[in-house]
Design a protein around this nucleic acid. Sequence first.
DNA 1: CATAGCCGCCTTTTT
DNA 2: GGCGGCTATG
Length: 710
Amino acid sequence: MITLTGSQEKAVSHKDGPLLIIAGPGSGKTRVITSRIAALISSGVRPYNICAITFTNKAADAMRQRVLDMSLPSGTHISTFHSLCVRILRRYADRASIGSTFSIYDDADQKKCVKEAIKQADLDTKSFSPQKMRAVISRLKNNLEDVTSFQERSSEFFTKCVARIYKNYQQILTQNNALDFDDLLLKTAFLLRDNSDVRDELNNRFQYLLVDEYQDTNQAQYQIARGLSIAHGNICVTGDPDQSIYAWRGADISNILAFEKDWPEATVVKLEKNFRSTANILDLADRLIVANKQRKLKKLVPTIPPGRDIEANTLEDEQAEAEFIAENIKKLVDNGANLDEIAVFYRVNSMSRTIEEACVHNKIPYQIVRGVEFYNRKEIRDMLAYLKILVNPEDDVALTRIINTPARGIGKTSLDRMAAFARMRNSSLYDAAKQAEQIETLSKSLKAKLAMFVDMIERFKTDINGPVAELMQRVFDESKLRNSLETVAAEEAHSKASAVENVEELINSAFKYDTVTDEPNLADYLLQIALVSDTDAYDPQSGRASLMTMHAAKGLEFDNVFISGLEQGLLPHERSVDDDKGLEEERRLFFVGITRARKTLNISLARYRTVHGQTMRTIPSQFLFEADIIAEDIRQEQEQLYEDDFSQAFDYSANSTAAFSKGQAVIHAKFGSGRVKEFHDLGENSIVVVSFNTGQTKPLMLKYANLTKV
DNA sequence: CATAGCCGCCTTTTT
DNA sequence: GGCGGCTATG
């Protein structure tokens, strides 16, 4: 039997009208949401009329499971914003002026299209890098700025160029009958804004709206939530401004701060008690987060005794750190801990490898919760491109990818000729392939090859309505993709997890989809899989330790947590420290990491770390000092180190030509030119701190840095 | 048209 | 250090 606190009770039983739940970490927020769904249902609301929106698929799955566990009648819509938008857009495709069989483009597809858009605008990809332009366009879309409004707003040369790229990019997407991730939100927001009948219909369909992690909604998501509840005002949002860690993706913390202004009659419930972590852990989290100025004052109220002290340790390098973590995991297990209850967090995915190796070495079973690595594999993308073209023949990106994969003698020249033909006819590449006979520039043998290709695709197409796994198996075999992957694998027998196995894993997941879906079909499967990331594969009962980024850790909790890499440049990350906003978000990220831990928290850093092939002396994270975590240990060590450095530097530089003096202009192979800011002479371990012209300041180990004096 | 080899580019976090 | 894309060669 679960007892609710007074404020939880209030949040659960609140019925009509807007409700804002400000909930700190570990406050039982998810339980409150599910209980609220139950309360709504028992008061007579049909599950069908309830819509709950979560931040990740993983969270949606967990909530669905909880609803099941409570034996509630099914029918409640539970999904992420993106999945909900896909459903809405498919249903109202004509109203939104999009084809109902649209492809969803991810980052890599987007980048290809942006590159093409830059070329079409006669701009060079050096001054306008596809990567950057992609990010700029993404940001514009998240802020609901469409091509027209951006064009009107741009007056300077640069922004005008961006506007042209944006326009071309959007045109390319339309031609391919494709939407990118951001379009899913933007098109839905505009659909709701511009069509009162659609809005009314959806308000009637979803009479109660719940949005979790509201602090991480961006402008587009905000407008969707508002549009979906404007008629009835039955919108319940939960969030914690201190856990906002997606501003880089357009998340707007003011959405939650302004909720009471949007809905003046809103009921506000605060859940401040923490039922998760020991008082020691919460103390630390509190000490850290008070440094943030952009926040509403809030204190974590512990309900659990102090427990174990927070551990903090400095290790020699990242291998030693990983080894240290692995050994401590072993100790925990020896003392009876369950591996499911152990997690290692880091700032960037690339740090997983060292820790993974240490786990292997120490025979610790582990699972890595990665971003999108699986779906970024070449063989997976190839396979999915085959499937996409079956559903959406307009998808030129998919067709370009597979028309000669595996090699079937249709090279770049032929593709260019087809593209010219397609442009003339204003048709797709696949259409050009179909009409190959009429393309005069193509040789006879090419026409035959294209006919065979088209024939194959058309044969696959007959099976798109029905179970997916079987079709995928066929495509894999008959396209000869399997064959070509096997050949490659045979040549390099030592290759990693084989490409064939990866595709088979994909087919397995499709088989699962077939079994749990009422009317499985390829179009539906592709839309679903486009929104799935590896992160969703996290299995809370795998019997293995979990390795993940702090972003991926959002919403999870573990008895024992390790946080690694507490170093300047890493946490806070160097790309985030330019302004206070970025720094505060990094602080919140660390806050999220800390508050995942129930019982023990183990923080670590390395003195030396090799990043991108450069071994560098690290500087302990400012957060350690701010939160007064390892005051003595590290502070003493730091002071000692710097004293040693300076005295030696003084002695050494007096009679050495190798020494770098302050202000010396230098050139570095990677970072370009800069000036020496500090020089710590430690013999062969000397460190030069250089402030580069790029604006970055880096401590470099002399023996690795390969610096040239100018 | 295919292949191999080289160059240059990027590398924060994710739906 | 890894990948995609480009170029030179067969």
